[in-house]
Structures are given as structure tokens and as C-alpha cells.
Simulated assay, not measured.
Amino acid sequence: MTTIITGATSGIGKATSYELAKKGHALYLLVRDVVKGDELAKQLSRQTGNREIYSVKCDLSDLYSVRTAAEKLKSRLFAVNVLINNAGGIFPQRRTSKDGFEMTFAVNHLGHFLLTQQLMPLLIKGQARIINVSSEAHRVGRPNFNDLQGKESYSAWKAYGNAKLYNIWFTKSIADKFGDKGLTAFALHPGVVNSGFGTGLSGFSRLLLSLARPFMISPEKGAETTVYLATQATLHTKSGGYFKKKKPVKPSADANNVAYREKLWQLSELLITRDL
């Protein structure tokens, strides 16, 4: 199995990479910091005996970096069996990416949208599973299509909730648009994981996170549903589904809004071609 994963150097991504390395997957770790990525690849190889672990530079907030990473992968690989869009983040203050997009939108959605589009020939050849790490935070998502970039009104949690809702819309759209080509897609909530998530938050948000920390699960526990979706043999009938604790669960009502997710897809296609 050839598997690509973003956000592999910490938290859930690192734990997921370790479990898949143990299962013999040929792993391509897409990382912002190639020094950390190379160190992790060597570490996982030592720990698991798996020699097919590689790191590839990819900054999801930079569309040129995403395209460059995809071209490198296409030059090395014939097919991809699993793509795990795992990387994400929450940003206390509104920031913009190199391409001018609000950072939560860029990292959690648009970078993964472009990566998936660019890798589509390899994914189709590999009859791939595409796994998008979402969150129960999607239930507070209330997107404003006239202000996707949060210029008029920004809050960290609102932007994050919207982005996690986009992850589910993206998943359902892939299942609809590419199911006849053999692709399956799944979204998931990993649990509230004790990792570096939320570093930099302040005020009430920081207080809430500190109070919740004793009840958070480990990255290893948080990775279980991702690993399940990447390896379980009989999931094709659940394509487009949202999973929690390795079981399909019902997402929010907005998550099933076909018109909204089609609008997001069309807007995303426009945005990723804007800088060409």
C-alpha cells in the first residue's frame, strides 16, 4: 500500500504514521519542515523496520509548494492507495497565507483541495481511499460565502468550525464525483486529543483548553479511527460518511447540504487557479 499523509510530524499524524508503518505501508510524509520530516522517517524506520518511509516538503498554506510536492510525487509514483489529509490548525488572530487566503481556510481546506486535485491521476490508478480529518467542531460551522476569508468578521473558533465543515463537504463531493472511478472518501472526528493543538490561543479559549486537558485522549487513541479507515477492507458502501470512534455517525444538518458543498467546490476550483 502506498500512503500519503499530511501533518505527519506531530500529534495524530505522527501516531497514524507509526501505526501504518508497522502495517507495512510505503509512507510519504508531507511536511513543512523537511529536517523534522527526514528525522521522523528515519525514526519510524528504526522503530518498525519499514524502509519505505520518505518525507516530501509541502507547505499547505502555499499553493506553489503544494503543486511542487504533487509534481515530485507524480514523478516517483505510479499509483497512490491512501491519501490522508490530516494537517490542520487554528489561528488566534486572522492571518493570511502567502497567496492571500485566510490561514485557517488555506491550511485546513484549500491546500488539501489542491493536493487532492493534483494527485487525482495517481489516486484513480490506485483506487484510493481519501481520508479527511474533520472534527465535531464542524457542528458550529456557519459559513458566509460572501466572506469565506473572514475579512468582515473573524474569530478563531468560527473559522475552525467552518473549515471542519468544509472537510466533510469535500469528502461527500469526492464520493459523488469520483465514486464511479473507484475512489472512496471518508471524514472523521479523531476525538479531543492532547497534542499541540490550540497553542497560541488566549483568554477564554485558552482557559477552556486548559480545563479540558485532563480529559483529552492520547494521540495514539486519536489516530485509531484514521488507521481504521485506512486499513479496514469493507468500507466502500460507507463512502462519503463521517466517522467517530471507528463508526459512522450522523454529521450536522448543514453537512448534508448539497447546494452548499457544490458551491464550495466551485469556489475552491476558482481560487486554486487564481494564481496561475
Rank of each mutant, 00 (worst) to 15 (best):
230 A>H: 06
153 S>K: 15
104 T>Q: 10
189 H>V: 11
223 A>V: 05
133 V>L: 11
184 T>H: 09
59 D>G: 04
161 G>F: 01
127 Q>D: 09
15 A>P: 00
164 K>Q: 07
32 R>H: 08
56 V>W: 02
87 A>K: 02
74 K>W: 07
133 V>W: 00
268 S>T: 10
243 F>S: 07
274 R>C: 05
255 A>V: 09
62 D>S: 12
10 S>L: 04
80 V>L: 12
18 Y>N: 00
142 R>L: 10
260 Y>F: 12
16 T>Q: 04
191 G>F: 13
209 L>H: 02
66 V>D: 00
137 A>R: 03
58 C>V: 09
139 R>F: 12
61 S>H: 02
120 M>N: 02
118 Q>F: 04
198 G>M: 05
186 F>G: 06
18 Y>P: 00
9 T>R: 07
96 T>L: 14
24 G>V: 02
40 L>R: 05
251 P>S: 14
77 L>I: 11
172 K>T: 09
69 A>I: 12
17 S>T: 05
185 A>I: 08
25 H>M: 02
113 F>A: 03
107 V>R: 03
181 K>L: 14
138 H>V: 04
203 G>F: 01
132 N>G: 01
124 I>S: 04
194 N>S: 15
95 R>D: 08
241 G>D: 07
270 L>H: 10
12 I>V: 07
136 E>Q: 11
174 I>D: 06
81 N>A: 11
46 R>M: 11
106 A>C: 11
155 S>R: 14
66 V>H: 08
13 G>T: 07
141 G>S: 05
192 V>D: 14
113 F>N: 11
233 A>H: 11
234 T>N: 14
123 L>F: 06
205 S>F: 08
232 Q>P: 00
84 I>L: 09
18 Y>L: 15
42 K>Q: 14
148 L>R: 06
270 L>Q: 15
260 Y>P: 00
212 A>P: 06
224 E>W: 00
148 L>D: 00
207 L>P: 00
274 R>E: 14
50 N>M: 01
200 G>A: 12
188 L>S: 04
19 E>H: 10
248 P>G: 01
82 V>S: 02
109 H>M: 08
99 D>L: 12
67 R>G: 13
75 S>H: 13
197 F>T: 09
107 V>S: 06
108 N>F: 02
155 S>M: 08
110 L>N: 14
1 M>N: 08
261 R>T: 03
224 E>D: 09
142 R>F: 09
223 A>F: 08
127 Q>M: 12
163 A>H: 03
68 T>Y: 10
112 H>E: 07
164 K>S: 03
259 A>T: 15
92 P>K: 13
190 P>T: 11
41 A>F: 02
132 N>H: 07
126 G>D: 10
75 S>N: 15
191 G>N: 13
124 I>H: 08
47 Q>S: 10
105 F>N: 11
139 R>P: 02
5 I>Q: 04
181 K>R: 15
247 K>L: 13
63 L>E: 10
87 A>Q: 02
149 Q>F: 03
171 T>I: 01
67 R>N: 15
81 N>D: 15
152 E>H: 13
17 S>A: 15
178 F>L: 15
131 I>E: 03
179 G>M: 05
95 R>K: 15
91 F>H: 12
45 S>T: 15
96 T>I: 15
